[in-house]
């Protein structure tokens, strides 16, 4: 009897494993980002998943951790009330990303050819058979809207100088509450081989407008900011010249989900970035955008000269109003 008690004590002492894992490898949570774009023929869904890193440190050194390695079914449906009237399946496509924090081995997005119409409801459905998990979300695409100003590109020139900043006027788009004002600079690039026409988009202001504007929304853009952004985004190359061709003005309207996501990110609180989601059984954003363009503006001579010799863009080698570079 005494021996039995002794053996029992020994078992108790050895059997009490006091170490346990603080981090439990639970089911990964799907992370979904999809922005329906009527201006694109191919729509894209980005699907990743949460992962557990070593003691919460570091980024994954392998993309296998962040992508589903098993079969995943993705589809987007156009809805009419409760009924799906169009069904589009999405397939995995491997893409190469630019070097950055995350591994640049390869990356996976899901793409399909799909026409997106304005002022319509779409449903995103993702089914992961291995986990028997269904993820879904809804979004309403923005309706038609118009860029009222700048207008008449055949007649008017845009003056991008701080003395008179250009003013954007645009009408309200149904289902949209976030708008981005942009200018696209079209220019010739002239090098020893020849001349090519190129474009550079300059995103100027992102504004959230939830009120009824009456006729249209009004927002004036900062001309100096245009030159600063352009100077930072375009590459300096002393072996070529650039010559102004035209300027396109456009407004991008985004859905309410995108607006909330933008606001959360804009506030800069890292603990709130992942707070907002409109994905059921997952996290992320399913939203949509729409555009209104006016293309082909000329600019005033002062604007061309500012592009050529202004402090923010002089290194880009743009030709002045007379087609010269005075510093050459």
């Amino acid at each position: 009897m005494k021996n039995t008690i002794l053996i029992g004590f020994i078992f108790l002492l050895i059997g009490c494993e006091s170490d346990f894992d603080l981090i439990h490898d639970g089911d990964p949570i799907p992370i979904v980002y999809c922005l329906l774009d009527p201006g694109e023929e191919i729509q894209t869904i980005r699907l990743t998943k949460t992962f557990v890193s070593d003691q919460g440190r570091g980024l994954p050194d392998s993309v296998e951790l962040i992508y589903y390695q098993t079969q995943v079914n993705l589809a987007i449906e156009k809805m009419d009330g409760d009924q799906a009237i169009e069904h589009t399946e999405f397939n995995a496509v491997t893409v190469q990303k630019e070097p950055g924090l995350f591994s640049d081995e390869y990356h996976i997005v899901y793409q399909s050819s799909m026409k997106v119409t304005g002022n319509s409801t779409y449903r995103l459905i993702i089914y992961i058979p291995e986990e028997d998990k269904l993820i879904y979300s809804y979004t309403k695409t923005p309706g038609d809207f118009s860029l009222v100003d700048p207008a008449y590109p055949k007649l008017r020139s845009i003056h991008l100088m701080p003395d008179h900043n250009p003013v954007f006027h645009w009408t309200q788009a149904e289902n949209a509450i976030i708008y981005q004002l942009c200018l696209q600079l079209n220019y010739y690039e002239i090098d020893s081989i020849g001349t090519s026409l190129r474009s550079e988009v300059v995103s100027l202001n992102t504004v959230i407008k939830n009120d009824n504007p009456g006729n249209y929304y009004v927002y004036d853009i900062n001309s100096t900011q245009f030159y600063i952004t352009l100077g930072n985004s375009m590459k300096e190359d002393l072996n070529l010249f650039r010559a102004f061709h035209s300027l396109d003005a456009f407004v991008v309207a985004g859905g309410s989900e995108l607006a909330i996501h933008y606001q959360t990110q804009h506030e800069g609180d890292p603990f709130r970035i992942m707070d907002f989601t409109n994905i059921q059984n997952g996290i992320g954003v399913f939203s949509s955008i729409s555009y209104s363009y006016t293309r082909g503006f000329k600019v005033t001579n002062q604007t061309v000269d500012s592009l050529a010799y202004g402090q923010f863009t002089k290194q880009l080698n743009f030709l002045d109003r007379d087609g010269n570079r005075k510093d050459q």
């Binding site: 009222v148 100003d149 700048p150 207008a151 008017r156 020139s157 845009i158 003056h159 100088m161 003395d163 008179h164 900043n165 250009p166 003013v167 006027h169 249209y216 005033t300 001579n301 002062q302 109003r321």
Partner: peptide, 20 residues
């Protein structure tokens, strides 16, 4: 000659313009 010192971005929605 088009050598202006200032230009306004005119619009159909505003009749008044000012130059400093």
């Amino acid at each position: 000659q088009g050598n202006y010192i200032q230009s306004a971005n005119v619009t159909d929605n505003m009749p008044f313009y000012s130059f400093h």
